[in-house]
Design a binder for these strands. Structure first.
Lengths: 112, 112
DNA sequence: GGAAGACATCGACGGACGTCGATGCATGAA
DNA sequence: TTCATGCATCGACGTCCGTCGATGTCTTCC
């Protein structure tokens, strides 16, 4: 695309991220890159028991129950939240592995 | 929205994320939640000098120069990349603060 | 000054995303 | 059994996003 015949700078070295790895991480980040979903994760993580039922989460937002359910599904599909149905209510809990994966990725990326 | 008159579970306690804070973090994460942009950041961060010029970044993707320029603009606007024009070429470098902010956020969120 | 190259910007297109109302599916109570 | 409740699913709508070709701007060299 740009072939002027001379190298304008040092070539990119080191072990960069592969395309497949980038797709995976992007999928996880995309699930978290939403204000509502971030608050959902924050609410669940900051709860005393470490989990929360949908009925309480609904009251925390000015959104339809269908919308909250959709966001929870996205977070669950991405592996961020765990799902546990007890009787009539459904409880969601945070998967620490997903969050620590993001944390370690960006902490090591600074000085690779 | 759901007021059955009885508490189905423990109320959400602790200091959760505010709506404004969630918007800010979501904007940063949205800039990173893209495979191409993730690889761009990874390429720049893993380079020997810690920076990379656009001409080399273009060759790493099967995308138009306009598309790469767009992604770099998004990352720059989000505060992820620094821009430095030297002569004809433009060099981008990673802002460590942005990445460490994400890392600390998700490392502390696990056990809040 | 004119030409060539590096990068940004513009306008447009197709697909993905967030949100909603309506409906379906369980579960527990009357 | 029947009904009410909690939650998921469906279909639809408007908007945002990634990508492209074309064009503009700036720098350097002849």
């Amino acid at each position: 695309m740009s072939e002027p015949g001379l190298a304008c700078c040092t070539p990119l070295s080191g072990t960069a991220m592969s395309a497949e790895q980038a797709e995976q991480v992007a999928a996880l980040l995309k699930a978290l890159a939403d204000p509502v979903r971030l608050r959902l994760v924050s609410l669940i993580a900051s709860s005393a028991t470490g989990e929360a039922c949908v009925c309480d989460l609904n009251d925390a937002f000015d959104l339809t129950q269908a919308t909250i359910s959709h966001h929870l599904k996205v977070l669950h599909s991405a592996g961020v939240l765990d799902r546990d149905k007890r009787g009539v209510w459904v409880y969601y809990a945070v998967r620490p592995e997903a969050l620590t994966a993001v944390a370690t990725l960006f902490s090591t990326a600074v000085r690779a």
